[in-house]
């Protein structure tokens, strides 16, 4: 069964036509997203700037209780 499953994927990947281009696009896209965008442009704000959940909760509470620090425009 495992052999059959292996050859399903192995032969499937080998015989791809359009799929080869698509896999290239997928890998390039994932590389841009995870190795560039996520690392350099999308750090998790709370995870990066605070060490503990208590600090994170305090920060959010501060924004909630001191509206001047996060005031309303929309």
């Amino acid at each position: 069964m495992f052999k059959n499953a292996f050859y399903l994927y192995y032969d499937g990947f080998r015989s791809m036509v359009v799929g080869r281009t698509l896999w290239k696009i997928i890998f390039i896209k994932l590389f841009i997203m995870f190795a560039i965008l996520k690392v350099f442009f999308f750090p998790n704000f709370l995870a990066t700037n605070f060490d503990t959940d208590t600090e994170r909760a305090d920060h959010v509470l501060k924004n909630l209780t001191e509206p001047s620090s996060a005031n309303g425009n929309h």
Binding site: L37, F41, F42, P43, N44, F45, L46, A57, V60, A70
Partner: peptide
Amino acid sequence: FEFGTNWSNYSW
């Protein structure tokens, strides 16, 4: 990604 970076109060 955007939730964690731009909308962190909401995300939390």
